[in-house]
Design a protein around this nucleic acid. Structure first.
Lengths: 205, 205
DNA sequence: CTCAAAATCCTCCATTTGGGGGATACCCCG
DNA sequence: CGGGGTATCCCCCAAATGGAGGATTTTGAG
């Protein structure tokens, strides 16, 4: 029996979903709340297996909600259920510890399947969300740097000095310096810190 | 009709999969290769919709394979199909542009479903893989820094000098320096570059 | 072959950084 | 009340950094 809790402000949606879930064999949904504030304390003592969380909520947003919930109940699996599909909503939710993200148009059958999946160690996502998440890892634009420059940037990010980079690559520190000047120009930065930041952000290394 | 290509070195698996896929209505699988090298040129002219890619391959690995394939055919969707589940295999594949990642134990039905899903803009992943990917975004440990230190770290990442950080926060550069020394100790680093890297990696800012 | 890009090396010099100290003040908790 | 953590300020000094130049060789594509 999977104990599901539900946080959703629209009373119609909330009650309908609760009925569907609670009415399905193997599932139970006796705890549902219209906002995060009123859910935190009861859920702390109830200890649900899975929490379905809306994002647009009165008061605390669902994103803050995940954060709070995961702090009180680190072992609970939170599944976002939202109409929002923008980058901020998705990635912030995941950053706060959500273990899945479904758009609200998900049919009940798939919702139930997702709940089961998350319970079994998965991380269900709607198709477009999954694509968005994976594309985070794939930098579409290519690096403007030459292979040598990329190599030097990589070592630069390690915090090594020009000399030690030079030793690692069997070239002089002066040469390293020249390359780094070119790198800075190409990346439009003028310090190591900015270069590191850009390198990590744009996944140039 | 979805045109599927297959790169897999085990002849049994390769031929079985090809037969299953090609024998399913709506799917076609006429191109299958035992390694990346022999696949690149033919696939360039064939232009498949989806490529199933193994990782353990003779010669070029499947990970390098994705990279090469996506460079030649940016619009093709590559679905990894591997027994490997380690972080490196998963994240490197995604970084190179894979649009999905299935473990080899995936039953044929689900494999076919995944192919269809990727074709419709999704990004299918096996349960454990999806969980691994999402957990990438959730830094389990919280920041060991004080609010003030976090603020300074943020500005440090911008590449500002101690003095300019001081000006921004209405404190002296000396104080900024003291905070930064504490930050370095807490993060176990000893240069700005490493601090920036750690800050971004652990999402401390 | 030719020309451009990439990779290698160098100098001068002001500024920044980071390691080692030390000091005061505040606030909260036990 | 005392102690620990935080925040603020200061010193000295060696090392690293970055901006400005200039130079040569190697490589690669047309």
């Amino acid at each position: 029996m999977i104990h599901v809790a539900l946080i959703e402000d629209d009373p119609d949606i909330r009650k309908t979903l609760a009925l569907i879930i609670d009415g399905t064999p193997g599932y139970s949904c006796t705890h549902h709340y219209p906002d995060v504030e009123s859910a935190l304390d009861p859920l702390h003592s109830f200890q649900p297996d899975v929490v379905l969380m809306d994002i647009n909520l009165p008061g605390m947003s669902g994103i803050e909600g995940v954060k709070e919930l995961k702090e009180k109940l680190p072992s609970v699996d939170v599944l976002m259920l939202s109409i929002q599909e923008d980058d901020h909503s998705v990635f912030e939710s995941l950053r706060m510890g959500a273990t899945g993200y479904l758009v609200k148009s998900t049919p009940p059958t798939q919702l139930l399947q997702a709940i089961q999946e998350v319970q079994q160690g998965g991380a269900p996502m709607s198709a477009h969300i999954a694509r968005k998440v994976l594309s985070y890892f794939h930098p579409s634009r290519r690096s403007p740097l030459t292979p040598r420059e990329s190599e030097i940037l990589r070592l630069l990010c390690e915090g090594q000095t020009y000399s030690s980079i030079g030793e690692a690559l069997f070239i002089s520190g002066h040469t390293v310096r020249s390359h780094i000047k070119n790198i800075y120009q190409k990346l439009y930065v003028n310090s190591r810190a900015e270069a590191v930041k850009k390198a990590l952000k744009d996944k140039l290394i």
